[in-house]
Amino acid sequence: MTASLFRDILRVTGEHMLIVAIAVGVAIVLGIPLGIYCTRNPRAGRVALRVIDAIQTIPSLALFGFLIPVPFIGGIGMRTAIVALILYSLLPIVRNTFVGIRGVDPVVRDAGVALGLTSRQLLFDVELPLAMPSIVAGIRIATVIGIGVATIAAAVGGGGLGTFIFRGVAMVDTRLILAGALPAAALALIADVVLSAVERKLMNDER
């Protein structure tokens, strides 16, 4: 491996991590409140969950394609890639926030209300802490999926490790494909291990 290829791999890996980090970060900021909203308004919540479920079924390459002509968020480049990844990352985060809060023992919630917690205190002191392992699991799934899907972002000029993979496919060069695929796989594994550990830690804290 030449030194310049190695430098390129490092640079593109960094780019890849940046795309996923921004997308998952935005998805967390949007997704957790949306998940909470779904628990508070079951009817609207069902609709919202159905919609983000549907987004998930769009093949990723098609989703990138659909976004290209959309003004402001679309076009060719990293921005489109990030928007598509946010849409993909929303589902596991919203759903796991929803499921985590709904999974809180009704007796515990009842006791909280009856002891005089306001609905805000109930949310922040009881429901969210108890839902946290589930929410972190959602973030982990979003991150791992995001790292994989982000490789396709190169198709719309989004950069990242997919750049090597697409170039490798076009040139029928297995080494180039591997130069993109191996770091992506490694990133996904590392993210999975680290976030699983966080999840377990939170579970233990709950006893």
Partner: peptide
């Protein structure tokens, strides 16, 4: 509610 005590089956203690 803050000046009423409430005791429930299964205790409803906060597990965390």
């Amino acid at each position: 509610r803050r000046r009423s005590g409430y005791i429930i089956q299964g205790s409803g203690l906060f597990p965390h």
